[in-house]
Design a binder for these strands. Structure first.
Lengths: 115, 115
DNA sequence: TCTACATTTGAACAATTGTGCAAATGTCTT
DNA sequence: AAGACATTTGCACAATTGTTCAAATGTAGA
């Protein structure tokens, strides 16, 4: 950052208070990573598809029309960010949503969109 | 996409059902844009700062330590995605969260992180 | 062990993104 | 009208991202 604007005396309080209340950098990064995971059409489609029932990589490829490889790469991201969990079954790997929060957030996001 | 894996006979039902239930492309893009807006550290900091009270571009620059220009660019994105609203007051432009859904979603995301 | 197929992985590459800089715009005060 | 300062905007550039391809790995069955 180069440019710095003047701090109004009267804004100083707000600024210090806001800075204090801001979550620390690490928390910010965790939460933004979480939203970022949902902030991509392919990954969001995967998550929506998993709302109903668990599906394997191949199913998700067929559902979305994307290559198995592309799906697998995105599944890794969703897995790392604790949005999906998986279970191996023979040659297949079945993915499911990792917890109830995901469903809640999707529901609110849908409601938010309908305005 | 090049590689396509075989559809299991027994998975065909799941696949068709999932495809049917999937929101249409436009909705997917809208929702992923929404999450994407929150999925960046700078923008998320702005949103957290605005949880308490409305702030102007300059305040947000001071709070985050980023240039006024960088903040302004990110505010435009948050504005376009209906996450923040603004009001002009003389030389200043004050931003605030646009609706209650944002607060709800942040609350759930925080809870999701605490596990 | 060999074959078939599901999945993952790493490299490569185009596309997108986030930031700072400089210039433009807007608004208040003198 | 001129100066001061907040904000926005367009450009440039480095960094990140999403996809494909090719190769590697894993697993079941002949």
């Amino acid at each position: 950052m180069t440019e710095v604007c003047k701090i109004y005396e009267e804004h100083l309080d707000k600024i210090l208070k806001a800075q204090e209340k801001l979550p620390d950098e690490e928390t910010i990064l965790e939460i933004s990573d979480f939203f970022n995971a949902l902030g991509n059409p392919t990954r969001l489609k995967i998550v929506f598809a998993l709302l109903e029932e668990e599906l394997c990589t191949c199913d998700l490829s067929n559902i979305t029309g994307l290559s198995v490889s592309a799906i697998s790469h995105q599944l890794r991201i969703l897995k790392d960010r604790k949005i999906v969990a998986y279970k191996k079954d023979g040659k297949n790997v079945f993915y499911r949503l990792d917890d109830e929060h995901i469903r809640q957030i999707l529901k609110i996001a849908l409601r938010h969109m309908e305005e």
